[in-house]
Design a binder for these strands. Structure first.
Length: 504
RNA sequence: GCCUCGGUAGCUCAAUGGCAGAGCAGUUGACUCUUAAUCAAUUGGUUCUAGGUUCAAGUCCUAGCCGGGGCACCA
């Protein structure tokens, strides 16, 4: 890259200064024996014990005088002349370093002049508490580990330029601690989800992302080409059809967490590649899976966020929304629609429903001319009901036309055994009593394909003909779950590298 | 694809159509415990790109690029 400025030039000169003294500022390895944030916390714990009145009991934490060997990035520099303070940071947090040229010795002090803010260094020293009470390390020796040839973003405001934050996420992670926290917590969320399913006896699997026929959802796929096989493949749009093959194969409880790809618009809630969890349990049904979803999300909230009351804050730090995961409402689709569209909504004629939707409910832009009656009601649900379902709600008894691939409810044959779990105004997890009748499944898929036989996944239908156990299944959009649990309003803030248009 | 807002120093932001600025960072100096260190001095610009209007454009107009928000698309 050609772009240079005086700041980059200065850093290159410091690099040259190190090289001229035979110092390689890009080391192969360095073995620290502790972590910055951990050491700081343990030293603070000892200091608190040390200052407490008698009786003190057994010492705790790490005492002053302990030798440590630490590595990290220099994130602050306070120069007092004969005494300098640095902040050294690694993934665990930061700790203050105290540097005195006279302690380092003449040679090391000369080398230290070429160290810049944001460089990685390794140090050895002893722990002590400053007069101001700050847990610190008195540095006795240091070694450059990785020089930064570009200046870091500012420290006051952090990095706010959204484009740089997304394109150069590493800078966002360096500059913005809350962002770092979100992604560390996302990792914990995935860990807890896996633990939850393993603890329940589920088997985790990995199925193909490149598929000859993209099935399991109705979405536009990405297309790719395999040179050696000489044929086109699609990136998967869902996990479903391969996981059901595994139910046929006798894997009774199975789940997968993986990327789906949909060639559609981007928005605050949509990224072209997104992470999906699907789980299937043989001999269960949609009620089984409702319990699973609720238990899973409660478990993850408690272990990762530490509470069932999830606060979402605005830019000023004020709570504007609290999601209460201790109460899970169950509501029928028709009842929710009636709440918004009128108690007699389902008694009036289809023509009257359409008129009310367009004129009274102002959904003209959301209702196409060719919409059937159930789609008109569907628009009411999607536009007027779903966004209001902030608190956890299982929407059940959906009309069978809306979800053609699910099993009919025995209790009400006009509806299907399906739930949509809505939280935070979004559908977070749909769940089904899965179709295991190969004849009904074939009819439904053929109807959906609209006569295009190529799109039928024959192998999947054949697998069902070998016999699939009754099963409950769920899909959970992991990114949206993370948004809800971590108080983020944009999917780009829970995906490390969200999709952006390449810079020319 | 459409509507709308934005793009100025490394970062965060100013600048009625009239000399392109500040804070921080950087550099130099002072200071033996600072932590948004402080104090003094100081460097740093293709104002996203290409055209146009004008005596004069960061500012107005046209087109484009990139981003945010909204819409459309999305079982």
């Amino acid at each position: 890259m050609e772009d240079t400025n005086s700041l980059i030039e200065q850093r290159r000169q410091n690099l040259a200064g190190l090289n001229a003294r035979g110092v390689n500022p890009f080391m192969n390895a360095f073995r620290p024996d502790a972590q910055c944030g951990t050491v700081r916390a343990e030293l603070a714990r000892w200091a608190e014990w040390n200052q407490s009145p008698e009786p003190k009991g057994e010492p705790v934490g790490l005492p002053e005088g302990t030798r440590v060997r630490l590595a990290g990035r220099i994130t602050a520099h306070r120069d007092m002349g004969k005494s300098q303070f640095l902040d050294l940071r690694d993934v665990s947090g930061r700790i203050q370093l105290w540097i005195q040229p006279k302690v380092l010795g003449e040679d090391a002090a000369a080398i230290f002049k070429f160290i810049d803010l944001a460089d990685f260094i390794g140090i050895e020293g002893t722990l002590f508490i400053t007069r101001m009470g700050e847990p610190s390390v008195k540095v006795e020796s240091f070694i450059p580990l990785g020089k930064a040839l570009r200046p870091p973003p500012g420290k006051w405001h952090g990095l706010e330029d959204t484009e740089i934050r997304y394109r150069q996420r590493y800078l966002d992670l360096i500059a913005n601690e809350p962002v770092r926290d979100v992604f560390l917590k996302r990792s914990q969320i995935l860990k807890e989800i896996r633990g939850f399913f393993h603890q329940r006896g589920y088997v985790e699997v990995e199925t193909p992302m490149m598929q000859a026929i993209p099935g399991g959802a109705a979405a536009q796929p990405f297309k790719t080409y395999h040179n050696a096989l000489g044929c086109e493949f699609y990136m998967r749009i869902a996990l479903e059809l391969y996981l059901k093959r595994l139910l046929v194969g006798g894997v009774d409880k199975v789940f997968e967490i993986g990327r789906n790809f949909r060639n559609e618009g981007l928005s605050r809630r949509h990224n072209p590649e997104f992470t999906m969890l699907e789980a299937y349990e043989a001999y269960g049904d949609y009620a089984t899976m409702m319990e699973t979803v609720e238990s899973l999300i409660r478990h993850v909230a408690l272990t990762v966020v530490g509470t069932l009351h999830i606060e979402h804050r605005n830019a000023d730090g004020d709570v504007f929304k609290t999601i209460d995961l201790s109460h899970w409402r169950r509501a029928r689709y028709k009842d929710l629609v009636r709440e918004k569209a009128g108690a007699d909504w389902f008694q009036v004629s289809p023509e009257e429903r359409r008129r009310r939707a367009v004129e009274d409910l102002k959904l003209a832009g959301d209702i196409a001319d060719g919409y059937e009656d159930f789609e008109v009601t569907g628009a009411v649900f999607e536009k007027l009901v779903e966004p209001t379902l902030i608190q956890p709600t299982f929407v059940t008894h959906l009309p069978k036309q809306l979800v053609p691939l699910a099993k009919i409810s025995a209790e009400d044959p006009t509806t299907v055994e399906v739930f949509e779990c809505c939280i935070n105004g979004q559908e977070i997890a749909p769940g089904y009593t899965e179709q295991n009748d190969p004849i009904a499944q074939r009819e439904a898929l053929e109807h959906q394909a609209g006569g295009e036989q190529q799109k039928l996944d024959e192998d999947f239908l054949i697998s069902l003909e070998h016999g699939m156990p009754p099963a409950g299944g769920i899909g959970i959009g992991i990114d949206r779950l993370c948004m809800m649990l971590l108080g983020q309003e944009s999917i780009r803030d829970v995906i490390l590298f969200p999709q952006l248009k390449p810079k020319a």
